[in-house]
Design a binder for these strands. Sequence first.
DNA 1: TAGCATTATGTTATAAAGTAACACTTCACA
DNA 2: TGTGAAGTGTTACTTTATAACATAATGCTA
Lengths: 130, 130
Amino acid sequence: MTKRGEQMRAEILAVLREADGAMSAYDVLHRLQASHPKIAPPTVYNALAALTKTGRVHRVESLKAYIACQCDGTHKLAVLSICDGCGTVEERTAPRLVENLSGFVEETGFMPQRHVIEVHGLCSSCSSNA
Amino acid sequence: MTKRGEQMRAEILAVLREADGAMSAYDVLHRLQASHPKIAPPTVYNALAALTKTGRVHRVESLKAYIACQCDGTHKLAVLSICDGCGTVEERTAPRLVENLSGFVEETGFMPQRHVIEVHGLCSSCSSNA
DNA sequence: TAGCATTATGTTATAAAGTAACACTTCACA
DNA sequence: TGTGAAGTGTTACTTTATAACATAATGCTA
C-alpha cells in the first residue's frame, strides 16, 4: 500500500467514475496510457483487484467489465441492471432480496459468501425508444 | 441444423454432463481434440452458443465456464451455487426469487430479459471439512 | 538510523477466452 | 438438378487475464 499504488487506484477509480457505462480492463488501460505511456495490463488488473476487494469497484461478470461502485460500502448486497441497448449499468442495493437468495441456497447446506446478481434488459429510456 | 452440427452439440453436451464441475470452453475443446484432432475454438463456441440458446447448457459467468443444464427446460429461472472449494456447481430453479428480482429492477422502469444469479461459497461437504 | 526481512507493486512474457470474416455444406424449393 | 438461404467450419486474430519474476517501499531490530 504505497503512495504510488494508492495513486494508481485513485486514478483508475476516477476514470471509471467518469465513464458512462462499464469499462473493460483494457478500456481503462488505454485511457491511462494517454498519461502513463508505459503502463501494462497487470498494473491495471492489480489495481482493479484491490479496488474490488475494498468494494470501490465491481466487476460486471456478464460483461467482463468494471464499474465504480455507486452505493459506497454496502456493495455485498448489490443488484446490477445492465441495459443491452445503451450499455449503462445501474447498481442498487437489495438487502431483502439477497437475504432471500442466501436462504434459498442454504436450504441445501450451501454456505454463501459472494453474490452475483445481474439483470440484462432495457433501461426505461431504451425500452420506450424501441 | 444439420446432422453434423447436431452430432457435435450432442458430443459436447455429453462431455459437459460427465464433468464434475463447470468446464471452460477450452477444457471442452481439448477434451474433444482427443477424438477430433482438427477441431477449432469456434466450432466449440458455436455449439455452446446453440446449446445455451436452447437452454441445454448454461454459461457460468463468474467462472467463464459452462455446465450442462441440470433442470431441463426451466432454465430461465435458475440459481447457480458455485462451490469455491471443490468447484461443483449446483443448479436449482427459484421462480419466486426471480419474480422478486424482476419486480425490483422494474421499479426503475427497467425491462428485465435475462437474469444472472450466481452464488459463490462452500458446499455442505466442503464447509464441514473446513 | 543502517541493515535486513517482509510485503506490496511493476514488468516481461505468455496463456486463456472469445470472435470476425470468410469458405464450405446442407437442405428447401423451384 | 440448380439456386439460394441458412447453418456450420476454418483461418487468423483480438481481447481478457495471469504467472513468474524484478523492483521498490515499509517497518522492525538493534
